[in-house]
């Protein structure tokens, strides 16, 4: 594989991890979030600071990074207990802008210069770069997918689905809305934190603008494109949206136009996403399955 392919692949794997996290919040628990990049950023900044100023290794910093992002996710998830739909969407956008401003204007976070000199990940005495680092990201993506799958199979997952479908009906079945919305925020933001940590050690230089509102929109687009609430949707979404700019490189000028056209086509023909209910992929799959049974 060329360096170019490996770089694109690593970006896609990292963004897929972050998109899987958003899928837990938006797809499973039904809480809209347009500020997910903030948690991607919080993960990246905490890992960067812990491994540069803090002097920790990537591995000893990682549990702290997950804890920090998950905890901030819990605190910033609190508005979701009182706000719904549009209001929650606007609030989460606000959270994204506030977090970026804190990174940008508080000198502790390196200000506009960001943080540089982030060490590489060391595994078995090897400094990971190129293909090994890509495999590390893919291994983490597999772990995230496993966690998501286990979550959908658990009581907590079922409780979240019920909340997404009908909050008051769920709470009159004994499901605590507070507990499970916050559980989804903690799990989803911790996954974003993991993605952020990998991003920091891949780029080795980060700045606040990497984690702005456009990134949040991008991540949400991945989840929507692939299929909200499906297990593989966010991964597929990350793959498609990660590769499109490369495929359409000659058409760079028209990139935004192509995105818009793609989203409109999705809304018109596949509103549930590429892997969502009643999507082409699902129909073909169930037809194949039906055919085998006959």
């Amino acid at each position: 594989m060329s360096d170019y392919t490996i770089t694109i692949g690593t970006f896609i794997a990292i963004q897929a991890i972050v998109a899987c996290g958003l899928n837990v919040i938006v797809g499973y628990a039904g809480q809209i979030s347009l500020g997910h990049a903030a948690f991607f950023g919080i993960g990246a900044y905490s890992s960067a600071l812990l491994t540069t100023a803090g002097g920790l290794s990537f591995w000893s910093a990682l549990p702290l990074v997950l804890f920090i992002t998950g905890f901030i996710g819990l605190v910033l998830g609190l508005p979701s207990l009182r706000l719904k739909e549009d209001f929650l969407a606007i609030t989460t956008i606000g959270i994204n802008f506030i977090v970026v401003s804190v990174f940008l204007y508080v000198p502790f976070f390196g200000g506009a210069l960001g943080i540089g000199g982030i060490p590489r990940v060391i595994l078995f005495g090897e400094r990971l770069r190129g293909t090994p680092f890509l495999f590390l990201c893919l291994a983490f993506l597999a772990a995230v997918q496993l966690a998501s799958w286990l979550f959908t199979r658990s009581w907590s997952g079922l409780a979240c689905f019920a909340l997404r479908e009908d909050e008051s009906a769920a709470s009159s079945m004994g499901v605590s809305p507070v507990r499970f919305k916050l559980a989804a925020f903690i799990l989803g933001t911790a996954m974003a934190g993991l993605g952020g940590a990998l991003y920091a050690h891949f780029m080795r230089f980060i700045s606040a603008t990497d984690f702005g509102f456009p990134m949040s929109v991008m991540i949400l687009s991945m989840v929507v494109l692939g299929g909200m609430g499906t297990l593989w949707g966010p991964v597929l979404g990350a793959l498609v949206l990660g590769m499109l700019p490369e495929v359409f490189r000659p058409l760079t000028e028209y990139r935004m136009f192509l995105y818009a056209a793609l989203l409109l086509l999705m809304i018109r023909f596949q509103p549930g996403g590429l892997l969502g209910e009643s999507s082409f992929a699902r129909q073909i799959f169930s037809r194949l399955k039906g055919g085998n049974q006959e």
Binding site: L158, E165, D166, A169, A170
Partner: peptide, 11 residues
């Protein structure tokens, strides 16, 4: 048993 059933539609 709520008015209009209110089952969880996509479950």
């Amino acid at each position: 048993v709520p008015e209009r059933a209110r089952v969880f539609p996509r479950l």
